[in-house]
Every structure is written in C-alpha cells, then in structure tokens.
C-alpha cells in the first residue's frame, strides 16, 4: 500500500474540507458512541436512570454470569464448526472447480445464496429445520428415520452453523478460486506431467501458494463468529436451556429488552476485546508462519 506521497498534487490546509463530511459522520456515529459505551460500562444505569458512576460491578458480574458463559462457549463452537463448513467447504469447492472446464455456472450458483437478505435465509431454514412439515424431517421420515428437533439442544449450534456454511461457502470458494487462478497453468501442467496425483497437486502445490488467503479466511470466520446476530435471532426462539445463545444476541437482549445499559455496555466491551485479540493473534501467526505473499 502506498501512502499517497507519490501522487500528491497540491497542498493547502483548507483541503481538509474534502475529508470533513466523512470524518464528522464517522466521529459522531462510531467514535463518540464507542467512547460512550466505554463510560457506560462503568456506570450503574437501568431503564435510562443513572444510578452511580465508577463501578466495576458489571465486569465482576460478567465473570459469573452463567448465560454469558454459555454464549462465549457457543461462539467458540460456532467458529469451530464454521471454519470447516464455510471456509473448508469453500476451499474444497474451489479446489474442484479450478480443475474443471466451463465451471462458471457452478461458481455463480454456489455464490448465489449470499446475495439473499439474512431474513430470507433465516425464515427459509427455520422451515427446513421445522419439526412438523420441515424439509429435513420429511426426508428423514421418508428414509424411515425419526423426526428430530433440529433447532434445540443438542443440535442448535450445529444446525445454525450449517446454515452459515450454506450461506458463505460460495463466498470463500470465490476468494480461493481467485487465488488458485493466479497460479500459472504451466506449474500445474508440469506437475501433472511429472506424474503428481491430484491430491498431491492440491496439497503440495496449490495450498501452500494460497496460504495467505487461508489465513485471511480464518480471520474473517473467527471475527465474524463473534459478530453474527441475524441468523441466531431469526432462526431460534428463546429456550430455557439457552441452547443457542451467542454474544451478539445476549448483548441486544441485555441493553435493548432489559434496558440494562451498564451491563450491556460491559458485554459489548468484552466482545470488542475478544475480536481485537483475535485480529492481533491471527496477524501475529500470519507474520511468523506465512510471511510475504508470493506474486506471479
């Protein structure tokens, strides 16, 4: 990335006016509310009445909140599942379509679900998973199996992850495909002539050459795993076991339904810290193990 020194055309301090609309909007809508949230997280504040400032109560409470603990565990489970279902499936599909002629139709169809709004995806899959008149249970009973309640314990998290995989596998396929397409055909061709097997080509030549994209996919899946709200909110109804509670849903429930601004802010800070920690760790791994991207 350049830092614009090369292409500079003019200098004058009033030029800041060009950046001002964007900066002001960003400050007012993102930065200032962020600072508010930090302050609120140390404030006892319920139903829009401030009770006291300067308390660590929320952070202490969060350590022993069983539902919040469950939400954390579910987020990690969701990430674990979606690493395979989103990026893993995407990688597999990309590895196949790159070696087939006339693959454009497959690529565009696999990509297509991602353009749908989450509300369409969520309501459709809620019906697919439905106990009565659901697609999945109809197939199961047709094959002689028993009806399963897919959206409750112990299936909740895997069911939601499958929807995520269905939605995003095509997206990762597209990214990996672009990376694989950059590898010159001559490299693959000569490996084939040397008698390399298909799995050898995939594992020993293609994967190492797109490892930077694999790290990128991991970054997107893990940070995305802590931000996902829509599918959980739309697919699931609250159940006593809280079998599908995740951090973003817990957060909205706390500040929005229970109007507990203080605790909600603390939860949002925890979520932010986890996401930033993940970004730092993955960047660190990336620097050590992956290094610079090879260009062709």
């Amino acid at each position: 990335m350049f830092y614009g020194v090369i292409n500079m055309i003019a200098k004058k301090n009033s030029y800041i006016l060009f950046a001002l609309p964007a900066v002001l909007l960003f400050l007012i809508i993102v930065v200032i509310p962020l600072l508010f949230t930090v302050v609120f997280s140390f404030t006892e504040w319920r139903r829009f009445n401030i009770i006291k400032f300067g308390t660590f109560e929320h952070y202490i409470r969060s350590l022993s909140d069983p539902v919040l603990g469950k939400a954390f565990i579910h987020n990690f489970l969701y990430i674990l599942f979606t690493i395979f279902l989103e990026s893993g499936t995407g990688l597999l599909l990309a590895g196949i379509v790159i070696h087939l002629k006339r693959s454009i139709i497959y690529r565009s169809l696999f990509f297509s679900p991602i353009i749908l709004p989450s509300i369409v995806v969520g309501v459709l899959w809620r019906q697919i998973y439905a106990y009565h008149a659901g697609l999945l249970n109809s197939i199961l009973t047709g094959l002689g199996g028993k009806d399963i309640d897919w959206l409750s314990y112990p299936f909740t998290m895997i069911s939601v992850s499958i929807v995520s995989g269905w939605l995003f596998a095509g997206f990762f396929m597209t990214i990996f495909y672009a990376g694989l397409a950059r590898i010159p055909d001559s490299i693959i061709e000569s490996a084939k002539l040397d008698g390399a097997s298909a799995s050898g080509i995939f594992l020993k030549i293609e994967l190492p050459l797109i490892k930077n994209l694999i790290m990128l996919a991991l970054l997107i899946v893990t940070t995305g795993g802590f931000k996902g709200f829509d599918l959980f909110q739309i697919l699931l109804r609250r159940d006593p076991l809280e079998s599908g509670i995740v951090l973003p849903v817990f957060l909205v429930r706390t500040f929005f339904e229970n109007q507990d601004i203080g605790y909600g802010s603390a939860v949002s800070m925890l979520l932010t810290l986890v996401v930033i920690a993940i970004i730092i760790v993955i960047n660190f791994i990336n620097k050590i193990f992956v290094g610079r991207v090879e260009e062709f």
């Binding site: 004058k12 030029y15 800041i16 960003f26 930065v31 509310p33 962020l34 609120f40 957060l251 949002s268």
Partner: peptide, 29 residues
C-alpha cells in the same frame, strides 16, 4: 491527492472502523 495538516491522522482514524464490530458502539449509539 492532497496534503493538509492532520491528513494521515484522519486517514488512520478510519482503520478503527475496519477492526471494530458494530456491536462495540451499538449501545452508545
């Protein structure tokens, strides 16, 4: 294309937006 005081600081401000999830400022907003 332009140069003015505080330019690089303002640009780096937006990097914050790339890292932050919406949830981190949702309550304040």
């Amino acid at each position: 294309r332009l140069r003015y005081k505080g330019r690089d600081f303002l640009y780096s401000l937006f990097f914050l937006g790339l890292i932050l999830p919406t949830q981190s400022f949702l309550v304040g907003m």
